[in-house]
């Protein structure tokens, strides 16, 4: 199968040093991965093509790059699955980090954020003579997130990071979860307090890009959501995000459905009166445009809501 690899190249030593696309044509086999192809290019067509790679088996995390616009490990991605109808595969360096050369990015910022979550076990109390006792389920649960190989794919495609580079990002937050969920760790509360700050767990926009691109099924966003619910449970100071979730749940409990004006009013409340007031002009315009349902802006509860509430209570009572 003839495949054209359209590779974004960049060499800071040429002048002017601007990224450009270069195409390489080669014959690929069914079983070939994008990494096989890139190595073949490097060994037979162009030694200067630069990338990181090592294990070839999706465990070292070196060869993350964007393939057809989405971050992936080149060693785990089949050429055949990616080639367009015209046989083109586009390869670019990861996003949300500076490029050093060709497909090699600078991951210093990535590691700085990992360091920010104090990524080491901080047990409480005295070290036991033997091992810490921990349930099999809790350790098995942690294998899911310990499976992270720090390849950077999630960070590359994170929409919240693209909007604001100060966001801790999915990899560091998943790493933080690994400690918060570790029964041996004693610093859970202080970790959650730190993650409750701006740029922390509430700044994720829930776009699921990190879940989709993760080559190891870590599910970073799910871990961030778990951090949020643990934060709420631990009673860390409320933020607009946590109030939003709490009020949302309460509204569903009361009415079975959402009530947008109430949600805004109660989320921002008196603490954030200015935010609430700032929404007024838009609400007014919406009203003028007739963006209000026939039943009026405030919603009635779904029929049979009393029975429905009992389910809610049963859930909340459960151990």
């Amino acid at each position: 199968m003839i495949t054209i690899f359209r590779i974004r190249r960049f060499n800071p030593e040429t002048s002017p040093s601007m990224p450009y696309f270069q195409e390489y044509k080669l014959d690929t086999e069914r079983a070939d991965t994008v990494l096989d192809a890139l190595m073949h290019i490097r060994e037979t067509l162009d030694e200067s093509l630069t990338l990181r790679c090592s294990c070839r088996g999706a465990i070292c995390g070196s060869c993350s790059m964007r393939i057809n616009g989405h971050a992936a490990l080149a060693c785990k991605t089949k050429v055949q699955a990616m080639a367009s109808e015209r046989g083109v595969v586009q390869v670019e360096p990861m996003n949300n980090m500076p490029v050093i050369k060709d497909l090699v990015t600078d991951m210093a910022g990535f590691w700085d954020k990992v360091r920010q979550v104090q990524p080491w076990l901080q047990p409480a109390g005295q070290e036991p003579e033997a091992e810490y006792l921990a349930s099999s389920e809790s350790m098995n649960h942690l294998t899911g997130v310990m499976g992270c190989i720090m390849c950077g794919a999630c960070v590359s495609d994170c929409a919240a990071l693209e909007a604001d580079e100060r966001f801790l990002g999915p990899a560091a937050l998943a790493k933080a979860y690994r400690f918060v969920a570790d029964p041996r760790d004693g610093a859970g509360r202080s970790r959650l307090l730190a993650l409750n700050e701006p740029g922390g767990m509430w700044d994720c926009t829930r776009c699921m890009e990190c879940i989709e691109v993760c080559p190891k099924g870590v599910g970073a966003m799910d871990r961030i959501m778990s951090l949020r619910s643990r934060g709420i449970q631990a009673g860390v100071p409320s933020t607009c995000g946590s109030r939003h979730a709490e009020v949302f749940a309460d509204l569903i409990y009361r009415k079975g459905r959402l009530d947008e004006p109430m949600l805004a009013a109660r989320t921002f409340g008196l603490q954030n009166l200015s935010r609430l007031l700032s929404l007024l002009p838009m609400a007014l315009r919406a009203f003028v445009r007739g963006k209000v349902p026939k039943s009026g802006p405030l919603h009635r509860a779904i029929p049979g809501v009393e029975k429905f509430r009992r389910l809610f209570q049963r859930m909340e009572e459960r151990p």
Partner: peptide, 20 residues
């Protein structure tokens, strides 16, 4: 092994919660 466990390695456990 115990040093590694104390450092944080999430070794598999048996039903009593000890290392398996």
């Amino acid at each position: 092994i115990l040093t590694l466990e104390h450092m944080g390695v999430i070794f598999n456990r048996n039903e009593e919660g000890r290392l398996g």
